[in-house]
Amino acid sequence: MAGIYIHVPFCKQACHYCDFHFSTSLKNKKPLIDGILKELELRKAYLHSKKIDTIYFGGGTPSLLDTEEIQQILAQINTLFKVATDAEITLEANPDDLTIPKIKSLKAAGINRLSIGIQSFYDEDLSDMNRAHNANEAKVVVQNCLNQGFEHLSIDLIYGGTTLSDENWIQNLKTAFNSGINHLSAYSLTVEPKTALSSFIAKGKKAPLEDEKSIRHFELLKSMAKEHGFEHYEISNLAKPGHYSTHNTNYWKGEPYLGVGPSAHSFVGNSRQWNVRNNAQYIKLVSEKGDYFKQEQLSPYDQYNEYIMTALRTTWGVDFNRIQERFGAELLSYLEEQIQQISNNLIEETAIGFKLSTAGMNVADTVISECFWVEN
Rank of each mutant, 00 (worst) to 15 (best):
M1H: 09
H7I: 04
V8W: 09
C11L: 13
K12S: 13
Q13C: 10
A14D: 14
H16N: 10
C18D: 05
S23D: 00
P31E: 08
P31N: 10
L37T: 04
E39A: 04
K44V: 09
K44T: 12
A45Q: 11
A45M: 11
I52G: 04
Y56P: 06
G58W: 04
G59Q: 05
G59C: 05
S63N: 01
L64P: 02
D66S: 15
E68N: 12
Q71S: 14
L74K: 03
K82G: 08
A87E: 05
I89D: 06
T90C: 07
E92G: 02
L98F: 08
K102R: 10
K104D: 07
R113W: 11
L114T: 06
I116Y: 08
I116V: 13
G117A: 09
G117C: 10
Q119F: 10
S120P: 03
F121Q: 01
L126W: 15
H133I: 08
A135L: 06
V140C: 13
Q143M: 10
L146A: 03
L146E: 05
Q148W: 03
H152Q: 12
S154N: 15
I155V: 09
D156N: 15
E167F: 12
E167V: 13
W169V: 01
Q171L: 08
N172T: 06
L173G: 10
T175C: 11
N178Y: 05
N182G: 08
A186E: 07
T190G: 12
E192N: 06
P193R: 09
T195R: 04
L197R: 02
L197K: 02
S198T: 05
S199W: 14
S199A: 11
I201F: 02
G204Q: 03
S214D: 08
R216F: 07
K222G: 15
S223K: 14
M224L: 15
H232S: 03
S236H: 07
S245N: 01
S245H: 01
S245E: 00
T246L: 09
K253M: 07
Y257T: 00
A264V: 01
F267P: 07
Q273E: 13
A280Q: 15
Y282C: 01
S287D: 09
S287N: 09
G290V: 06
D291M: 03
K294S: 11
P300R: 04
Y301N: 11
D302H: 05
Y304C: 00
E306Q: 06
Y307L: 11
A311W: 09
L312I: 11
L312Y: 09
F327T: 02
F327C: 03
E336H: 14
K355D: 07
K355Y: 14
T358K: 12
G360Q: 08
N362K: 14
V363R: 12
A364K: 15
